[in-house]
């Protein structure tokens, strides 16, 4: 059974189409990621799926219930962690958790097992007001509150935005453990490198889905060979490579530039020869595998 089925889902705000006839399904128990920049439509989509916003067209079915007609039945069964911290800042950690449990007609004790892993990390500060917590702790409390009624499906809107690399890694480890407890998880993120942590991802940009697949298949569809190039003067290298007659794309990737050629296949020697003529020194090249970011940028250009 699908946890989510979406058909031609559309939402516009005046002249702006926030999401444009989206179609996708999410399997039960899946960890599914929406990967895309700000303004892609991720939050609009999440608000519709969590019954907080009405679509203009199309349909969305979540765990067998219609997101518009059955909103009352759906709400008790979904967990939602919005992108903006939305707990009560002047309630303590424990008061927030107790509040959310009560609203959903349950108690902290009843579902403590589910949140235990996460909550023990903030329990030493249970009497602190939520507004006084550090970013990482707020995130753990928000996740605990979204889980306290033991939802079947969990929506996390950009839980790792603005979070440092270490905390991001810890957060994903928590999600993996939740997934093992049979909760379907739908998460959005602007960080492309997090795609590889999902079972499947949808790449989303300007309200359109650019591609949906496993992370492995998405990069497999990238069909141009990529040459990683570096030199002692990266800015000079970048501007020079862009003038190569057969250039298709040049993008910085960490300590390398990723170069693709209009002809598809090419000889690295042509590139080094050209660059040497332009005075670029200490050139190193190596063939490299595409990343999700390579794929995303290629798909963006195809859709432009």
């Amino acid at each position: 059974m699908n946890a989510v089925t979406v058909n031609d889902l559309t939402k516009t705000y005046g002249k702006i189409t926030a999401i444009n006839r989206l179609n996708f399904t999410v399997n039960k128990g899946e960890l599914f990621g929406f990967i895309g920049p700000d303004g892609a439509g991720k939050t609009t989509l999440f608000r519709i799926l969590t019954t907080l916003l009405l679509p203009d067209g199309g349909s969305a079915n979540v765990i067998g219930l219609d997101a518009v007609k059955d909103f009352k039945k759906l709400r008790p069964q979904i967990g939602y962690m919005p992108g903006r911290f939305s707990l009560y800042q002047d309630l303590t950690v424990q008061e927030n958790l107790a509040f959310f449990a009560t609203v959903f007609g349950t108690t902290i004790e009843e579902n403590y097992d589910l949140i235990k892993d996460i909550y023990v990390q903030i329990e030493p500060f249970k009497n602190r007001r939520a507004g006084k917590l550090s970013g990482g702790m707020k995130q753990k409390l928000a996740l605990s509150c979204a889980l306290i009624h033991k939802p079947e499906i969990l929506f996390l809107d950009e839980p790792t935005t603005g979070v440092d690399a270490v905390s991001r890694q810890e957060f994903w480890e928590m999600l993996k453990r939740l997934q093992a407890k049979d909760i379907t998880i739908i998460v959005s993120t602007p960080y492309m490198d997090e795609a590889s942590l999902c079972d499947r991802v949808a790449l989303i940009q300007n309200g359109n889905i650019l591609g949906i697949d496993t992370p492995e298949n998405i990069v497999r569809d990238f069909d141009r060979p990529i040459l990683a190039v570096k030199s002692s003067n990266m800015y000079g290298l970048l501007t020079s490579l862009k003038t190569f007659p057969n250039v298709h794309s040049v993008f910085p990737f960490g300590e390398f530039l990723h170069y693709t050629d209009r002809r598809g296949k090419f000889e690295p020697q042509e590139i080094t020869h050209y660059l040497t003529q332009l005075g670029i020194q200490n050139i190193e090249t190596a063939w490299t595998q595409p990343t999700i970011e390579d794929s995303f940028m290629a798909l963006m250009e195809q859709h432009a």
Binding site: P37, P190, M300, E301
Partner: peptide
């Protein structure tokens, strides 16, 4: 560069 798409992020670094 928080939140921008990967192409814009690279244009920004340019």
């Amino acid at each position: 560069t928080g939140g921008v798409d990967p192409i814009t992020r690279r244009q920004f670094w340019n």
